[in-house]
Design a protein around this nucleic acid. Structure first.
Lengths: 129, 129
DNA sequence: TTATTTGTACGAATTATTTCGTAAGTGGTT
DNA sequence: AACCACTTACGAAATAATTCGTACAAATAA
């Protein structure tokens, strides 16, 4: 028996750590710790503990490199993002992606260029139908 | 001194309760409880407790009506949604709303009509610039 | 070899979230 | 009044998330 606990959605702090891993690739605890602001924001062992827990949860993999461990995100940023978006659509937007889109564009000041890019993207989607 | 704890983002369960309140307007504990599936999904006192906690946190207001309390969401669904969207844009989409939009439209099967509506919305936004 | 540095493992404290049992209040019936 | 149905209040347990102290291991410097 070697099955680990199944991966649920990452918690806040786990997500913050994942960001570092996504951005910098495989990292030692030290690197993650420093990237996250060092001791002023989190104790070293706090980050270590999280990485260990995340390893248990199959959120990250790890590999010995000399005497230290290099941790690596298992899920891609894309997958995780998609999962979060799907969830928010489901829980607050009655399953309607377009509602979320309106909300995303509504408040925020998207530049003319961004709007143009989105329009183009929609054109492509429509072409597929 | 009567200041209550300041409102942070609602938790999962709090959000579920807010949904009922948004949909049905001011509700008694009983109504919320039943709307959420009754005892099969949550004990009555669990919902009661949540409503009380949410009252403390200023997430809901309440008013005596006869012998019971009617609870009412303070934040609108719109505000809460916006807040959640802003946050997700901030934490996983590098502050880019359009990235979120792509992600939202990407996976999900938005209908031709929905896409049309979004396009129209973008037109309006562009008009304002 | 002893001390220091650098890293891991473990255990536990703290805080937040979720859950519910039990007691107690209120109003209406009989 | 005594009873009943319904509701609130309180306290506490169970679980999850966050934080860190301390001990131990290995490599290296003195």
């Amino acid at each position: 028996m070697s099955a680990k606990k199944h991966s649920t959605k990452p918690t806040e702090k786990e997500l913050e750590i994942l960001h570092v891993l996504w951005q910098k690739g495989p990292c030692s605890v030290k690197e993650v710790h420093e990237e996250m602001g060092g001791d002023s924001r989190n104790g070293y062992t706090t980050i270590l503990k999280f990485l260990q827990i995340m390893f248990e949860k199959d959120i990250v993999s790890r590999q010995k490199s000399g005497k230290l461990h290099l941790y690596k995100a298992i899920a891609t940023k894309e997958n995780t993002k998609q999962q979060m978006v799907d969830k928010i659509i489901d829980t607050v937007f009655e399953g309607s992606a377009s509602q979320l889109v309106m909300s995303a564009l509504g408040n925020n000041k998207s530049s003319r260029e961004e709007l143009k890019a989105i329009r183009k993207y929609i054109d492509e989607l429509e072409g597929e139908k």
